[in-house]
Design a protein around this nucleic acid. Sequence first.
DNA 1: CGAAGACCT
DNA 2: CAGCCAGGTCTTCGA
Length: 475
Amino acid sequence: MMTIVCHGDSLTEGSDLNKNYTWPRLRQSLYQDGRAEFAEASESLHPQAKGLAALAYMQGIRGQVESARLSALMRDLEIPLIPVLVSMEQAGIGVDLNAFSAFLDDVSAQLDELTRSIIAHAGEPFNIRSSQQLAAILFDKLDIKEGGKTATGQRSTANQVLEGIRGRHPIVEDILEYRMLEKLRSTYLEPLPKLVDEGSRLHTHFNQLATTTGRLSSSRPNLQNIPIRGKYGPRMRACFTAGPGNLLAAADYSQIELRVLAHFSKDPALLDAFRNDEDIHTRTAALLTDKPSRDVQPDERRNAKTINFGLIYGMGPQKLARELDITVNQAKEFTERYFEKLTTLKAYYDTIVKDAESNGFVTTLAGRHRLLPELHSRNNQMASQAKRQAVNTVIQGSAADIIKMAMVAAHKDKELAALGARVILQVHDELIVEAPEASISAAGERLKAIMQTTADLDVPLKVDLGIGKNWADAH
DNA sequence: CGAAGACCT
DNA sequence: CAGCCAGGTCTTCGA
């Protein structure tokens, strides 16, 4: 079920470790992320055996693990997580095939109509899915002024560009609509129903070794990128259901990354906001504008949200300027003002980078490491990117640690088991649990309690809970 | 197989 | 003067 890929190198069944993956490279990988040792173990075995096999495999390389000081992370988090993932993969999530089918019919009909309309506007048939052909139609034939270039210098036809030239020609609107519907058809509506089992359930593969930060990834099919926004997001999510007699509960960590940031940085403003359960974006806006929270305007809150979100990624003034539609200089002032108000936060950022530079790696809450050799690059752009990665990895990776701890705790929880509940999906800051109708409420509340108490931070962890027959209703 | 694009947190 | 924020998966095109 689970193909393990380690930093791009596939470990195939029966492969000789020394042949396909040299020891220095493995040690490096272990040291970096502490998750490589069950790669070999998981691969060739039935999923049920994955956990045990990983442990057995562990024995052979314990020395390496301990020398990397990663045994606790492995022993207490990653290895216990394996049977949890196996259970989630085997459980799968219910799919409403009739809803899928009706949805596909609607989308196909609209795509046919849009294709006719677009070809008519263009005056000649062409492949709408080809960005090259589309650019030729838009920018040469129809003489619309181009809106931007791709990384390789081509004239971009990306959504963001098309949004900007929306009013100039009716074809643009049709193409945006076409793109959205074509994505739904080709990625979700057509492939997914082919993958369901006899019980109409869909089983993903949770990959424990795919990311550099410690997050999981999901593939074949990816159930971590099911549409939720846009005109058809809710309808898409409503196609994912609980089994007969069951309901779903969705438990979302609220602002977990900013809470992690508050915990590590000890910034008084952030700590205070979360301890008083205030709206963090409104609070930031109030700080920036020197107003009481109740006087913050919607656009001021939106700007604060962008900056709060952006600082998890180490957003620069250019990007901020574009996001907020202000000049770069204004953005610089905005950022400066932000860090003047949150001086402890600024100091913490500097500390992460300084420690990373001297250690060569950053460390997350659970003791996961990420090596960042590019921090010492003479290339400024590379070094800057590594700095952003350092900050982001500590935050994103620690949030990943926390939800993994919650998953392990939930899996062994007697109360959830007694309620007939099982966790079936994880989407980075969200867990989906399925249980019989009569016990779903208790199961949701129990899961919520586990998620809120599994890690002890300097700020409370907040979890939003929703219950419903399908994934849309559970939000 | 890389580029472009679109979906997610 | 340009510089465009972190982590993923999947589909399609075109060489």
